[in-house]
Design a binder for these strands. Structure first.
Length: 564
RNA sequence: UGGGGCGUCGUCAAGCGGUAAGACACAAGAUUUUGGUUCUUGCAUCCGGAGGUUCGAAUCCUCCCGCCCCAGCCA
């Protein structure tokens, strides 16, 4: 533990922990846990929690467990467990041998329940679901006591063991805590501890037909694991008295403390598990790892790095304010990381053929190009140059707007890493009017410096040698939704999906060095953005590139302004 | 409506009675063989509102307003 860590609380949770150190509350121990339910893939919101919990443990020389909160077999599966394990590891965190499952505590939890029944503080209630809801009252009226509330301990014990034994139909009985049916906090109105549910569990199979509820299982799982600080999101604030109630019944000595923070929201996407499931199941995306998804798997496939995601989680902070973090902040973190680590390369997204009329036919030069202009240690690569090239369609304009620095009639422009060229003529498709070919001449004295005669050449455009280029597919991604806060819309939020969130460009050209680029590797295509070799759909020699994020584009802003 | 929580720049977020950090975004400029990077500069006389306490309040008190969460045998 470093000194700064002891003196620099950066958020209210760290303040609490450091406070606890000063009073020696948990014997100076920090034990946290990340407790996902394995019924979906984890997303950027979970990543915030993962970074918080594991980060706290690392900072204060404590431990963080990974615990599957698998108390409701419906929807839970091994696939999700495996994805969570993979994703948390990928994010850069390790729990050593402390991978736990709430389902491993089922027997202990059952015994705790028996204990609470014996204390006269839990009872088997035989009201049906509708009746329980009615009896619970509402915000304005207190609940009414269940007619089964005063069953004897013996009867409760008998009924509860028969619930476990499978003697009753689903829903016939539940075990309830006897707390306060009139409490102003609805959570405390004799909450349900166990329900009968004949659903096979992916780990315990058919061993159990009763399953503990979250409020009962979660706090006691924390206690069994000796968690000191149980960090969860704000919506569980109402449940904290119940958390404490259960723990007090059965645990003596040091008890875990629940602390709530605000869950993350990011603009132009949704982060609730229910909605992500809908996106997947209704095929609005190609799966949990669709690069447009805010899931860890999606971001990984898109090309985001764990470092970028971790940095984002650090930068957004931890507080209790409802929030909607700008998607541009995430993008900034991704660019910031990739700018340093991604080797540069050239690729053409919208090809336009260009012939250098005065360049000898059949001649090929190989230019030594820097892989990173600010970091020579990243080395160089050879890029072939020849008479016929492809350039970006956007880099030529027959009627250039003001401030346009690219190619146009009568103009000169620098070919990145190569010569200065001058426009000569163009060829159009007579039927469509589309420009099909450009003719230019090059200045042989300009490869490694400005024109010797002192002419100023302002623009620089990228290119690729037609003969040597690798044809590639490129996938462009945009925000999933058209509106900043789709999460706030309760109904028909799918109407706000961005129809242009995926654009596939089947015919693009990458420089030859990229032909066998490793799946998952990331490059900056100069002047365009960062791209990642798709790990699923690429084949050797035939890479598919995902655009991770575009470069900042100050010209795009100027150009857009010009149109208005 | 009963209970719980939250309101500081467009967005996150510091601030803990001594006179509004930082980041993103945005804007302007410099450097540049990426309109990228980097650098410089600007960007809340004001902290949901109104009163009060104090020499002094975003920070303490009172009232008011707004937003979020809770009435699953989900988590």
């Amino acid at each position: 533990m470093t000194q700064e860590n002891n003196t620099l609380a950066t958020d209210f949770i760290r303040e609490i922990i450091e406070d606890d150190f000063s009073t020696n509350k948990h014997a100076g121990r920090v034990a946290t846990r990340f407790p996902p339910e394995p019924n979906g893939y984890i997303h950027i919101g979970h990543a915030k929690s993962v970074c918080l919990n594991f980060g706290l443990a690392a900072q204060y020389s404590g431990t963080c467990n990974l615990r599957m909160d698998d108390t409701d077999p419906a929807g839970e599966s091994l696939e999700f467990v495996e994805s969570i394990i993979h994703d948390v590891h990928w994010l850069g965190f390790d729990w050593n041998d402390r991978l736990y499952y709430a389902s491993d505590y089922f027997e202990e939890l059952y015994q705790f329940a028996v204990q609470i029944i014996k204390m006269g503080k839990a009872y088997v209630c035989s009201l049906n679901a509708d009746e329980i809801r009615e009896y619970r009252g509402s915000f304005t009226e207190p609940g009414r006591e269940s007619p089964f509330r005063n069953r004897s301990v013996e009867e409760n014990l008998d009924l509860f063991s028969r619930m476990r034994a499978g003697e009753f139909e689903d829903g016939a009985h539940v075990l309830r805590a006897k707390i306060d049916i009139a409490s102003p906090n609805i959570v405390m109105r004799d909450p349900i501890m166990y329900r009968i549910k004949r659903e096979p569990h992916f780990r315990t199979g058919t061993n159990w037909v009763i399953y503990p509820m979250y409020d009962f299982a979660h706090c006691l799982s924390d206690a069994l694991e000796n968690i000191s600080h149980s960090i969860c999101t704000l919506e569980f604030e109402n449940n904290r008295p119940l958390y404490d109630w259960f723990v007090e019944q059965v645990i003596t000595g040091s008890r875990p403390r629940q602390i709530e923070f605000a869950r993350l929201n990011v603009s132009y996407t949704v982060l609730s598990k229910r909605r992500l499931i809908e996106l997947v199941e209704r095929n609005h995306v190609a799966g949990w790892d669709d690069p447009r998804m805010p899931t860890v798997a999606g971001m990984r496939r898109r090309g985001y790095t764990p470092e970028a995601i971790r940095n984002f989680c650090a930068v957004i902070g931890v507080a209790k304010n409802d929030n909607l973090v700008d998607a541009s902040l995430l993008e900034h973190c991704v660019r910031e990381d990739l700018n340093e680590r991604a080797p540069r390369a050239m690729g053409i997204l919208m090809p336009l053929k260009m012939v250098i009329d005065n360049y000898p036919e059949g001649k090929v030069e190989e230019f030594e190009c820097s892989n990173h202009p600010q970091n020579p240690a990243m080395g160089t690569r050879k890029v072939p140059f020849s008479r016929v090239l492809y350039i970006e369609r956007d880099d030529f304009d027959e009627n250039p707007p003001k401030k346009y620095k690219r190619l146009g009639p009568g103009r000169e422009v620098r070919l990145r890493n190569a010569y200065v060229i001058k426009y000569q003529s163009l060829v159009k498709d007579e039927r469509t009017g589309e420009i099909t070919e450009l003719h230019c001449t090059y200045d042989p004295d300009t490869h490694s410096g400005p024109p010797p005669d002192g002419r100023k050449v302002e623009g620089v455009i990228h290119w690729v040698s037609a003969e040597h280029a690798v044809p590639v597919e490129v996938r462009l991604y945009d925000r999933l939704f058209r509106i900043p806060d789709p999460g706030s819309i309760s109904e028909n939020y799918m109407e706000y999906l961005n129809p242009g969130s995926l654009e596939i460009l089947p015919v693009c050209y990458a420089e030859s060095s990229l032909k066998y680029a490793a799946p998952g590797s990331r490059y900056q295509f100069e002047r365009l953005g960062y791209f990642c070799v798709d790990a699923k759909d690429s084949a050797p020699g035939k890479p598919v590139f995902n655009r991770i994020v575009a470069l900042r584009d100050s010209w795009g802003k100027v150009a857009a302004r010009g149109k208005n």
